[in-house]
Amino acid sequence: MGKIELRGISKTFKNTVALKDVNLTFEENKIYGLLGRNGAGKSTMINIITNCCFADVGKVLIDGETAVENDNALSKVYCMSEKKLYPYYMKIKDIFKWSKNFYKDFDMEYALNLSKDFELNINKKVIEVSTGQSSLYKLIIALSVNTPYLIFDEPVLGLDANNRDLFYKKLLEKYIKKPCTMIISTHLIEEVSNIVEDIIIIKDGIIIENKSTEELLNSGYTATGSYEKIDKFANGKNIIGEDKIGSMKSVYILGKPEKVPDGIEITKLDLQKLFIKLTNS
């Protein structure tokens, strides 16, 4: 089966360790969420997969072939990011044409329809479009390119609420109609948590979580109650954080809730809170 594998990837920039011994597998036709704080190593990892920069140690395999400087392997991956990689003088419709040149399965008709849906003027040049429109045309290409692997690096930067909503809908439509592996790298967990099947959390270059969204949500719970009751209940448990609200205290605990005494309310783990707690130094 097709997959992208990262084996023992490490990368250091001058004095900073960007990635340390990363081992990951991205399977066929699944949507992954790659979450991490700014500077955690998400973009470096994506750059390494797409041959934009080189790992110090380790290898990337796309369908079993090494990705480095390998046209055949790289033609299976398309990455959409905020990096300014298209020539500033080029018109968007020409960028679509060139995408078709390099990626044989690019669906031009679909791209033009999406441009209409997103109200994007494709006669504008790269340098003439706003940040949001810049994201839009790259998203349109990503949704039209039909490669087995798609990477979205901060896809909704600069998009207004309407376009964000439309983007996620189009993404799901595309995923169902023409399945592929999608990796969405973002720090906007709330938006993607319902869309992604698996979540990978990266902190300071190390993968700290790699499980399905469901498992992650079920991995813990929130216990709320008076200070006294909570402190007693939470004692000895795997606490990953706490919040104080007036005379009440909420504790975030990993594990399954057992023997919950009266006066303590158990609710599910908030994924956003879990992420913050896990990735705080």
Binding site: N51, D71, L74, V77, S99
Partner: peptide, 9 residues
């Protein structure tokens, strides 16, 4: 940049 974006080595 253009070529790297389009997966050309």
């Amino acid at each position: 940049l253009m070529l790297l974006q389009n997966g050309i080595s």
